[in-house]
Computed example of a mutant assay.
Amino acid sequence: MHNNGDSEQAIREATGLSETELSDLIANQAGLPGQNANVPAAIPAIDVPVVALPVTGALQELIDWAAAHPTASVRSRAARITADLCELSERRDSEAAQREAEDKVARAKAELERAQEELRTVKASTRTTTAAATAPTPIRAGIGSGRTREELAAVRTWARENGHQVADAGMVPKRVLQAYDVAHQAPVRKAG
């Protein structure tokens, strides 16, 4: 990485090496004494964490070989590759979870649309059934005698002839209607 022109900070982040360890490695490659003069001349193996990834056996063997390699640049490449593979795996898993959530939302929206259509159908059939079940009613349902104009004219005529006071228009009092009904009932024969 150092030979490729990467900054020391980038190298430390990618490999997990401390500043001292990185300086010693760079110095050892150049043949200079490092900051830690007590380090033997041979390059020590540095523990680079190797994360188990869902990779093929051959690829995992290659990464394991590179992570244990005595050359720091090979180990650093193994660390970089491992980090990249981890990042790619996380991204793949994240995108798969996102797709699954989007599919779940789409299914829920479709189910909601079906339920709303069913509700509209039920409401429409209820309106049709209610409208068909009830005959047209007069505008003033529940008010008045329920008699035609001709019947009311006959009631008024009878009422005047029999001493009841009634107006020429408007409602006929209930007592007058009842008296008219009593007077015009067919006589009931007694059983006998």
Score class of each variant (00 low, 15 high):
Gly163Cys: 05
Asp47Leu: 12
Pro173Phe: 06
Arg99Gln: 03
Val155Lys: 05
Thr128Lys: 05
Ser125Glu: 15
Arg75Val: 05
Arg114Cys: 01
Ala78Leu: 04
Ala108Asn: 10
Pro49Asp: 09
Glu117Ile: 05
Arg189Leu: 14
Arg77Gly: 04
Arg127Trp: 10
Val51Ile: 13
Lys123Gly: 05
Ser94Pro: 02
Arg175Phe: 13
Asn4Ser: 08
Leu85Gln: 04
Gly16Asp: 02
Asp47Tyr: 10
Trp158Phe: 06
Arg189Asp: 07
Gln29Cys: 00
Gly16Glu: 01
Val166Pro: 03
Val50Tyr: 10
Asn162Asp: 06
Lys109Asp: 15
Arg80Val: 11
Asp6Cys: 07
Leu88Gly: 15
Asp64His: 10
Val172Trp: 02
Glu113Cys: 02
Gln165Cys: 03
Arg175Lys: 15
Ala169Pro: 00
Thr121Gly: 13
Lys190Arg: 12
Glu117Gly: 10
Gln29Glu: 07
Gln116Ala: 09
Ala135Trp: 09
Val55Thr: 07
Pro44Tyr: 05
Leu59His: 14
Asp64Ser: 09
Pro70Phe: 01
Lys123Asp: 13
Ala159Trp: 06
Leu177Glu: 15
Val188Pro: 00
Ala101Tyr: 08
Gln116Leu: 08
Leu177His: 05
Glu151Gly: 07
Val39Tyr: 03
Ser73Arg: 06
Asn36Tyr: 00
Arg189Ser: 12
Asp84Lys: 12
Ile143Pro: 00
Ile26Arg: 10
Glu61Arg: 07
Ser125Arg: 12
Glu102Ser: 04
Asn4Arg: 15
Ala78Pro: 01
Glu87Cys: 07
Arg114Tyr: 01
Thr137Lys: 14
Asn36Ile: 11
Arg160Ala: 04
Gln98Val: 08
Arg127Leu: 14
Gln60Tyr: 10
Gln178Val: 12
Lys104Tyr: 04
Arg107Pro: 01
Leu85Asn: 08
Ala78Cys: 01
Ile46Glu: 05
Ala83Glu: 06
Asp181Asn: 14
Thr20Ala: 15
Ser18Asp: 02
Gln60Thr: 09
Val182Tyr: 12
Ala179Glu: 12
Thr82Val: 07
Lys174Arg: 09
Ala72Leu: 07
Tyr180Lys: 08
Thr129Asp: 10
Glu21Gln: 09
Lys174Cys: 04
Met171Ile: 08
Ala124Ile: 02
Val105Arg: 05
Arg75Met: 04
His69Tyr: 06
Ala179Trp: 06
Lys104Pro: 01
Ala45Thr: 14
Arg120Ala: 15
Asn38Ala: 14
Leu17Cys: 07
Pro70His: 12
Ala10Leu: 09
Ser7Asn: 04
Glu90Gly: 14
Arg12Glu: 14
Ala106Lys: 14
